[in-house]
Design a binder for these strands. Structure first.
Lengths: 194, 194, 194, 194
DNA sequence: GATGAATGAGTTTTCATTCAT
DNA sequence: CATGAATGAAAACTCATTCAT
C-alpha cells in the first residue's frame, strides 16, 4: 500500500529534523517507523532514493505553502504580503525545515532533472508573479532568481540562521519588513522616492 | 608545530567542499593530507572536534571577509556597498562555502558557548554599523538580526540556492541590487519616496 | 535463535582460556566462531557486554558444579566431601578456569546487582549448608564467607596458583586433605581433640 | 638513575590496581608518571618487560611480608600465627593486591625461569618451616604446596573474593580462624582429637 | 508481501613503539 | 639522556543491504 510508503517518509522526515542527515541510519528509521528492514527496500530502492523522495516532498510542500492564495484577484503588493505571511507561517509550523533542506541539498545534488522540473512547476505561480511584474515595468529589470532573492531572501535567510525572531515581532514591525521587501523589488521609476 | 593542525584543517575543508560531510571519512583525510591516522587524533579529539574546528574557522573567515575595510571613513551607504562587494567576492572565491556551512550546521549545533562568543566578536564591526545607523534614525527600528537579514539576506539566500548568477550581472544590475538592499534598511522618514 | 548467542559465548570462553583477556579481540572471535562481525553485535551490545555475559556463565557453572548432589540425605561431613570432590572434578575438567576468572574479575568489577543476585542464588545450597551447620553448633561461630573460605579455600587457592597437584595425589592423601577441610570448620566443642 | 625506574614501577602498579591490566596504556603511565614516552623505553624494553618487572616486585613484597619475623625462636604454632597476621596485615595495607596479581598472572605466564627461582628463594623461610614440620611428623605427610594451601589458602581465598571481612572480626574470631589453619596442617597423630 | 537475522566492507579510534631533535 | 610528535597496524564498532523463511 502507499500508506506504508507515506508513513516511512513522514517518520524519516521527522528523524532528519531531529538528528540531521548525519545521524540518520536505516535502523533508526526501522525502529521509529515500526516496520521491518526489508519493508523499506520494497518502497525505496536504497537510502539515497528515500532521501531524494523526502527532498522532493519537502520542496513541494514549501512551494505549495508559499504560493497558496496567490492567484486570487488581489493587487501585486498584497500578493507579496500574502506570500511572506505564508512563508513565515510555514517556517513557524516547521521550524526545522532549513536544517532538513540543508541536509538534503548535500545528498541530492544529483537529483534527477525530472524532479527539478516538477518542483519548478510547483513554483510557477511565484515565477509568473515575478515575471509579470517585471514585464509591466513594476519590478526591477533583473533575473527572476534575483528578484525572488530580493523579496523573499531576507525572511529565508533569517530563518536559516535560526533567529526565530519573527514570531516576537509586533504587527507594525512586520509591516515595516514586508514593505521593505516589496520596495526592494520595485523599479526605480515605480518607487519615486529613492 | 601548529602548521600540521592547520594543514589538516585545510585539507579537510577541501574534502568537505568536494564530497560533503556525507562523504567525508577520516581515512580520506589521512590520504589527502599525507599524514598518519594517529596524527589527526593528536590535534583533534575526534571527528566531531575536527568538524567543529572547521566550522569555527569557516565562520571566522566569513566574518573577516564581510567586515573588511568597514571601519574606514566612508559614508553609511558606501559601507554597505563595500560589505556586499566583500560578500560577493568571498562567495565567488569559495563557491562551495554554503554547502560546507550547511553541512557544519547539522553537526555543530551544540557548538560551545565560547566559540559562539568569539565568532560574534568577529562580526562586531557589522553589528556596530547596524546599531549605529538605527540609533541615528537612519535605519528602521527593528532588531539587529532583522536589519542584517534585510541588507545581506538577498545575497546570501541567492548563493545558498546556488544560483551563481551574480558574476554574470552587469554593473548596472549590481548597482540596482545594492541600492535595493540599502533602501530595505532605511527608515521610512529617511527614504522619502516610499 | 539463541543457539548462536551460546555458540559465540562458548567460542569466546575458549579463546579467553587460551590467550587471556589480554589477547582477545573481536576479530579473533569472529574468525573462531565462523560468524560475521555484525552478528556478534546483534547478541552483545559491545565487548564489555560479551565479557560480562561470560563471567556470569562461568560463575553459574561453578556454582552448579559445586552444589551438585548437595541436597541429598547424606550426613554433613559427607556433604562437604562431595563438594570438594565436585570442585576438584570441575577444576580438572576446566583447568584454565582460574585464568578466566581472574581476567573477568578485572573487567566486570561493576557487574550488575541483578547478576550478582542470580549468582548468589545459585550458591544457595552451599550457603544453606554452612548456615545450617553453624546454627546447630556444629561449625565455628564465624561469618558464612569465612567458613566457606576455611573449607573450600585451600583447594581453590591451590588451583589458583596452578599447582595442579591434586590429580597426582593418592586416595589417602586426598582423604587427609578433605578431613582437614572438614575439621577446619568444626566448632571446638564438636572437635574434642583440639 | 634508578630512581626514575622505581618511580615508573610505582606509578604503573598504582594504575594497575586502579584500572586493571585491561585499561592500562603506556600513555596513561606517561601522564601519571610525568615522564616522556621515550623515557619508559629507556628503562624497560617494552610493555611486557614493565609488567613482568611489576610482577616480580609484587611477588617479592608478598614473600617478604609473609616471612617477616619467621626465623625467630618462637614455637611452630606461634610462627604460623605470625605469618597469618603478616598476611592479613599485608592485604589490609594493599587491598587491591589480588586484582593486580590476577592481572599479572595472565601476562607473565612465560616469566623467566630465573625470576621464578628468585621469587621461590624469597619464600624459602616458609618452605623451610613447612618442610621442617613435616619431617618432624608434626604436619601431614603431604606435598609442600598442599600444606601451604591448607594453612594460608583460606585467608588468601577470602581476600581473593574481596570479602574484606577480616578487619571486622573480633580477636576471638581471629583466634578461631588461626587455630583452624594450624590444625588443618597437623598430622592426625599430632592432633589427637580428630 | 513482510520479516529480521546475517553479512562484511568500511568507519572511527587506540596505542605500543620509534626516532629526529 | 630526555623528549614527544609521528607512525600505522590493529582494534572496536556501524550500517546499508540481502535473502531465506
Amino acid at each position: 500500500m502507499n500508506d506504508k510508503r507515506l508513513h516511512i517518509l513522514r517518520v524519516t522526515e521527522k528523524l532528519l529534523k531531529e538528528h540531521g542527515l548525519h545521524g540518520l541510519s536505516m535502523s533508526k528509521i526501522v525502529q521509529a517507523a515500526g516496520v521491518s528492514t526489508g519493508t523499506i527496500y520494497r518502497y525505496f530502492k536504497d537510502k539515497h532514493d528515500l532521501i531524494t523522495a523526502i527532498h522532493f516532498e519537502s520542496a513541494s510542500q514549501l512551494a505549495l505553502a508559499i504560493c497558496q492564495d496567490l492567484d486570487g484577484p488581489a493587487d501585486d503588493r498584497q500578493k507579496l504580503f500574502t506570500m511572506i505571511d505564508n512563508l513565515i507561517d510555514y517556517n513557524e509550523r516547521y521550524p526545522e525545515r532549513y536544517l532538513t533542506k540543508a541536509a538534503l541539498d548535500l545528498v541530492s545534488q544529483q537529483r534527477t532533472h525530472c524532479d527539478m522540473e516538477r518542483i519548478r512547476a510547483l513554483f510557477a505561480p511565484l515565477t509568473r508573479y515575478i515575471e509579470g511584474g517585471r514585464e509591466k515595468g513594476l519590478f526591477k529589470p533583473l533575473p527572476t532568481d534575483i528578484l525572488v532573492s530580493l523579496c523573499l531572501g531576507p525572511i529565508e535567510w533569517n530563518y536559516h540562521l535560526r533567529k526565530e525572531s519573527f514570531c516576537t515581532l509586533s504587527n507594525e514591525e512586520l509591516l515595516l519588513i514586508k514593505q521593505a521587501c516589496w520596495e526592494a523589488m520595485l523599479a526605480p521609476e515605480a518607487n519615486p522616492g529613492s
